[in-house]
């Protein structure tokens, strides 16, 4: 045993295992991976604390009832699995600002928080409009050969390439 952090797993091996996990999930639970609907449900639950009747009457929350379901627990599991794996591999590290962000913009928490927050708003509004995120469209849609999955995945990367170019320029 040593205290040095473990090396990351090969992305092909981890990807193949993820593929098998997705197959098992569809077979055992009948569930395809997805993540963004849970944010709708969580927001609905939070808004219900302040204005329960209003939330109950909103069409989108009638479509996506704010309650804890398979996907909600799936997301909680992702956080727990990552916590366990990072502790076991000694790679858990409290990181307030991502390394490559800090290299470009410095260690300011405020700037990172602003970009993270507004980026998050745009990303989730877009994901809900598209009806999926890189999990729901990118993985689950593509593996089912859905046209919407491939179109969404292409748009995700296209939009991301534009922002990355804008904020990092052409620098390597």
């Amino acid at each position: 045993m040593s205290d040095t952090p473990s090396k990351p797993w090969n992305p092909y091996v981890a990807g193949a295992l993820t593929g098998l996990l997705m197959v098992a999930s569809v077979w055992v639970s009948g569930k395809y991976f997805g993540a963004s609907t849970t944010f709708v449900k969580a927001t609905g639950m939070i808004e219900s604390l302040a204005a329960s009747e209003r939330v109950q009457a909103m069409p989108y929350f009638l479509k996506e009832t704010p309650k804890v379901d398979w996907q909600f627990m799936f997301l909680i599991g992702i956080a727990l699995g990552s916590l366990a794996a990072s502790l076991a591999s000694r790679t858990f590290a409290v990181t307030p600002v991502a390394r490559t962000w800090a290299e470009r913009f410095g260690p300011s928490l405020k700037l990172r928080a602003l970009a993270g927050f507004f980026g998050g708003i745009l990303a989730m509004f877009g994901a809900r409009l598209a009806d999926g995120c890189p999990s729901g469209h990118g993985l689950s849609g593509s593996l089912q050969l859905a046209v919407s999955g491939y179109v969404a995945l292409a748009c995700f990367f296209l939009g991301g390439l534009v922002t990355a170019r804008l904020i990092f320029g052409g620098r390597k």
Binding site: A115, L122, A123, F125, L129, A152, L158, G159, V162, T163
Partner: peptide, 14 residues
């Protein structure tokens, strides 16, 4: 448009 908007935000939030 949803996919593009997601991408623009994704690049910002990471």
């Amino acid at each position: 448009p949803g996919g593009l908007l997601f991408g623009l935000g994704w690049g910002l939030t990471g």
